[in-house]
């Protein structure tokens, strides 16, 4: 599903590469934690998968496509197959919960009747039934992240990328979010989650890829957060 082969990413203004000779393969339906300190290359890893950045050298394959050869007008099609969730939720505060989720489908031109059908379904899945008409600022942090997840998942992507999704949430709320991501993973969606949250990683016992200084220093199935933090 996601394959990085000898990928190096060097930003023009920096002398040290953000990623250096990274080779990782993630299969369909896997749940992968991406751990490492700030600046270890986690964000670059995720940005490469979304083709927000191009690899300086090496190959990045996502959903069977070689991203280096993917022409820019096909990038939107790629992003429709990759849902994304962030630490800061990135919701539109002037739209209701329902409108926020529907927005993702409207802008890619889905027909109205389809939107009317799938939006309530996905809101039910993430546990926001009854809060469809609230605005984001009337919701708790955990609920806002659920809206963001619903928006990322409403188009049934093959891959879900989560960049520190629990970074702004308290431990109890975080557990709820992790259950939700686990549930989404069980539908066959590949989940890649960058995190600093050691408790969560230790509890979930999923594959862990640790980056340090742009290199993969550990790739462990059913791993824990790490030994030193």
């Amino acid at each position: 599903m996601i394959r990085l082969q000898n990928v190096t990413k060097l930003y023009p203004t920096q002398s040290r590469p953000a990623l250096s000779d990274v080779s990782v393969e993630i299969d369909k339906g896997e749940f992968v934690f991406l751990v490492g300190q700030s600046g270890s290359g986690k964000s670059t890893f995720l940005r490469l998968i979304l083709k927000e950045e191009r690899a300086t050298s090496g190959q990045v394959h996502v959903a069977g496509k070689d991203l280096a050869r993917l022409s820019s007008w096909k990038v939107p099609a790629l992003r429709r197959q990759v849902g994304t969730v962030f630490q800061d939720f990135r919701l539109l505060n002037n739209k209701t919960v329902q409108e926020n989720v529907a927005f993702a489908l409207e802008v890619i031109g889905r027909p109205r009747h389809q939107i009317a059908k799938v939006v309530p379904e996905v809101l039910d899945l993430v546990g926001l039934k009854g809060k469809e008409n609230r605005k984001p600022d009337e919701l708790s942090g955990g609920e806002q992240q659920r809206v963001a997840i619903a928006r990322a998942f409403v188009n049934r992507p093959m891959i879900l990328i989560a960049d520190e999704p629990t970074g702004n949430l308290d431990p109890t709320t975080s557990v709820g979010i992790m259950r939700l991501l686990d549930r989404i993973n069980r539908t066959g969606t590949t989940v890649v989650m960058a995190t600093h949250d050691d408790d969560i990683v230790d509890q979930m016992r999923k594959r862990v890829i640790e980056l340090d200084g742009g290199k993969v220093v550990r790739d462990q199935s059913r791993g824990v957060y790490g030994y030193s933090h």
């Binding site: 820019s72 992003r79 429709r80 990135r90 890619i108 188009n155």
Partner: peptide
């Protein structure tokens, strides 16, 4: 920029953005 950022993210075409 928030709207357009989200549009990019969910795969709206450049044209529609």
């Amino acid at each position: 920029r928030r709207e357009t950022g989200i549009m990019r993210l969910v795969g709206a075409s450049s044209f529609s953005i």
